[in-house]
C-alpha cells in the first residue's frame, strides 16, 4: 500500500546549515493496516508524514502509493494535523462536507454518509455550531470525521489526540477503532504515547533520532476488539515494558 525506500531528507536550519532529519528510511505499510509511528519529539515523524502525503519532497529515495510513485498526487488520503485546522468560518456540518465538496461528489451521495459519521461520534445536534463554540474534544471529533467524509483509502493522523484530557482521549481512541473496523482503512498514526500506540496498532514503528530512521518494528498481537481495560492485562504490560526499554536504549537518555 505505502512503500518507502531509502528516504533521505535534510532540513535547512535558520543559520543556513543543512541538518539531516531522515536517513535511509525504509517502511512498508500494508493495506487496511493500523500502524503507529512512535519516536522522541523532534525526530522527524511529522516530516515523514508530510513526505508520504506529498506536502514535502524528500531529497532522495522513493515513495510509492499502491505501486505508483508519489509525485504530489493528492486526494487519496485524509490528513489530520497536530494543530486545529478546522475552518472557523464553516459550521460543523459544512466543515465535514469540505472533502466531498472538493471531490465534487454529489450531495445525495455524501449526505447519508456524513449524517452517519456525525451520529457515530456523537455530534448530532451540533451541526450548525461554529468551531469556536466547541470544546477541544468535539473539535477533534469533527476533524476526525472530516478526514473520513470523502472516503479516502488512507488516514494519516499526526498526534490527533495529543492535547486532550485522558477521558476524552480514550473515547476518541475507541471511536477511531470502531470507525476503522467498519470502514476498513489503512491508518498511519503518529503518537508519542506508547500505551496509545499499543492499544490501537497492528504494528508499531519505532523511530530514533539524529538522524532518524525506523529502528525497530513491533507486531502487536493482542486480539481485537480491544477495550480500554486491555492495558491492565499482563501481556499488555509486558509488551509495554519491552517497547519502553527498547525506546530508552535507543534514545540514550534514561528518563
Amino acid at each position: 500500500m505505502i512503500q518507502l525506500d531509502n528516504i533521505c531528507f535534510s532540513h535547512i536550519a535558520n543559520d543556513g546549515t543543512s541538518v539531516p532529519t531522515l536517513q535511509n528510511l525504509d517502511m512498508h505499510i500494508r493495506e487496511n493496516e493500523f500502524v503507529s509511528i512512535v519516536g522522541p519529539s523532534g525526530c522527524g515523524k511529522t516530516t515523514l508524514l508530510e513526505i508520504i502525503l506529498g506536502l514535502t519532497r524528500q531529497d532522495s529515495g522513493n515513495v510509492r502509493i499502491n505501486g505508483a510513485t508519489q509525485n504530489q498526487t493528492f486526494g487519496w488520503a485524509g490528513y489530520m494535523s497536530q494543530s486545529d485546522t478546522l475552518l472557523p468560518w464553516r459550521t460543523v456540518l459544512r466543515n465535514v462536507q469540505i472533502g466531498p465538496e472538493i471531490k465534487k461528489i454529489p450531495k445525495t451521495e455524501y449526505e447519508p454518509r456524513i449524517n452517519k459519521l456525525i451520529q457515530k461520534v456523537g455530534l448530532t445536534g451540533n451541526e450548525t455550531r461554529f468551531p469556536s463554540e466547541l470544546s477541544g474534544g468535539m473539535k477533534k471529533r469533527v476533524d476526525l470525521i472530516r478526514t473520513l467524509a470523502f472516503n479516502p483509502e488512507v488516514l494519516l493522523l499526526d498526534e490527533p489526540f495529543g492535547a486532550l484530557d485522558a477521558q476524552t482521549r480514550e473515547n476518541l481512541q475507541q471511536d477511531l477503532l470502531s470507525l476503522w473496523r467498519e470502514e476498513k482503512k489503512t491508518i498511519v498514526f503518529i503518537t508519542h504515547d506508547l500505551v496509545e500506540a499499543i492499544m490501537m496498532s497492528d504494528r508499531i514503528f519505532l523511530m530514533g533520532s539524529k538522524p532518524a530512521g525506523i529502528k525497530k518494528i513491533f507486531d502487536i498481537q493482542i486480539p481485537r476488539p480491544r477495550q480500554y481495560h486491555v492495558q491492565f492485562e499482563e501481556s499488555f504490560i509486558r509488551l509495554h515494558k519491552h517497547i519502553r526499554q527498547t525506546f530508552e536504549s535507543l534514545s540514550g537518555n534514561q528518563s
Binding site: L55, G75, Y79
Partner: peptide, 13 residues
C-alpha cells in the same frame, strides 16, 4: 494557517 491549507490540499483541492 499553513496547516489549514495543507489539510485541504491533501484532500485534492
Amino acid at each position: 494557517n499553513q496547516g489549514m491549507i495543507n489539510t485541504i490540499r491533501v484532500m485534492g483541492a
